[in-house]
């Protein structure tokens, strides 16, 4: 839904960081996207390619997207599970006393520059 505006924001951050470090070229952007973030991988990749433009700095930048599956911890069972279909219910005891450990991320982990 927001993929275009997110792609623009990523490019903004990347250009700022590149300038700070005097980079001539940004080789790669490593992004982490949780399965609960609502962000679609293909749509974001497409949007990023559309906005990165013809500038030398980002023309060949690869956006690498790592998907992070949902991870929940059930308090009574004290075990970690992958939720299915956005569910945070414990698959073992079917209880709701769980904690979301992973799945909502949308962050730039690092960038590779020259």
């Amino acid at each position: 839904m927001h993929e275009l505006s997110i792609a623009i924001e990523i490019l903004d951050i990347v250009e700022r960081e590149a300038a700070k470090h005097g980079a001539a070229v940004v080789r790669r952007v490593n992004l982490r996207v949780g399965d609960l973030s609502g962000v679609e991988t293909e749509s974001l990749a497409f949007s990023f390619d559309a906005v990165k433009g013809e500038k030398d700095l980002t023309r060949d930048t690869i956006l690498s997207i790592e998907r992070l599956p949902v991870k929940i911890r059930c308090t009574p069972c004290d075990e970690v599970f992958h939720g299915a279909g956005h569910m945070v219910v414990c698959p073992q005891c079917e209880g709701f006393d769980t904690q979301l450990l992973q799945g909502e991320e949308l962050e730039i982990e690092d960038i590779i520059i020259d």
């Binding site: 505006s5 997110i6 470090h21 080789r27 690092d110």
Partner: peptide
């Protein structure tokens, strides 16, 4: 020589901001 810059920065959409 390529250099890795660690950011660990959250990205927000314009609407979220």
């Amino acid at each position: 020589m390529s250099k890795k810059i660690t950011l660990e920065q959250k990205v927000l959409s314009r609407n979220d901001i």
